[in-house]
Design a protein around this nucleic acid. Structure first.
Lengths: 163, 163
DNA sequence: CGCTTTCTGTACAGGATGACCACTCGAAGG
DNA sequence: CCTTCGAGTGGTCATCCTGTACAGAAAGCG
């Protein structure tokens, strides 16, 4: 249940240059094309590689404001709140957490003023007791995976014949 | 600076089925292949579409634990803290925010015990005054973009000849 | 109305893809 | 020691897609 160095190099390569195909990747990695194809098949089947979805920038869509909201939920209302938040397009992500709040969600909005509308819609639901919002100013480290993949590959077990 | 309905349908289609190519997408959307290619070129050039990076599951890499840490930073130490956190592979994302804390970062770890090691490494830096961590239990809404794209496309200005 | 931009349909050359094969290699097991 | 198995290699094959280009038609705008 891990990746070896070749997997790691392959993922990093694809992360850096998603446009290259299997053939070019095999050339860069110095292995046969069939090997790359087999590795990709395995990574996808194990779920390590979920796919190659489009990476969309909300700001370019007209939603330049990002915020994180910590929500406190009324006992037993979790499922309802989840269902409610799923219906809000500006909720990009939702987690249930330990700690001060019960849920943490990532929001986007068209402006700071618009954020108020989004928050109103988010918290305008009976099961939510309290919400505390933190507006994102800068994003010094955008969502990344390369360093983690490199570390996992370095320490990685080889997938090996038996495992 | 927005997307029209065709852009929206295209992005949603690619988000749902990333493996289909330009030709198949044009068939599904009922437009000419050249149109899809032109739209994709424009979306990439405007930055709305950053690319098609591999979607890696940290859990499958051996990091099943996710957490969010709110950090309080000593005045004027922001840049140093950013540089420090960039060197930690388990820091997948970092934002500077308004509100109680000064920064919010997403962490992963191999286990709850390992999370302690990660947090120690994160906060083991002079500029960080205090850290408060929330461990993610469930992820009812994984990072998504489709509903937002659909809304943006619905309300969207057409890209039009000039604007 | 005329200009401009987009979309369409088509064509072409080049390349990539997925599939298949026989062979080699190394490790695990008998 | 030998066998067996999985993985990788290098090769081939037909098919399909890609990037690019072009002329003509359609639609918005002054």
């Amino acid at each position: 249940m891990a990746i070896d160095q070749l997997d790691g190099r392959l993922i990093v390569l694809l992360a850096r240059e998603p446009r290259i195909g299997v053939l070019e990747a095999s050339r860069r990695l110095g292995v046969a094309r069939g090997t790359v194809q087999a590795r990709l098949d395995r990574l996808r089947s194990t779920g390590a590689l979920r796919g190659f979805g489009p990476d969309v920038d909300p700001a370019a869509l007209g939603y330049p404001v990002t915020a994180f909201a910590t929500l406190e939920i009324k006992q037993g209302q979790g499922a309802d709140v989840r269902a409610h938040l799923t219906t809000v397009p500006e909720v990009l992500e939702l987690h249930t957490t330990t700690g001060h709040g019960d849920m943490l969600c990532r929001l986007v909005a068209r402006s700071n003023a618009d954020l108020q509308r989004v928050i109103d819609r988010v918290v305008g639901f009976d099961g939510i007791v309290r919400a505390s919002t933190a507006i994102v100013m800068e994003n010094p480290v955008p969502l990344r995976i390369i360093p983690l993949v490199e570390q996992a590959a370095r320490e990685g077990h080889r997938p090996g014949p038996v495992g």
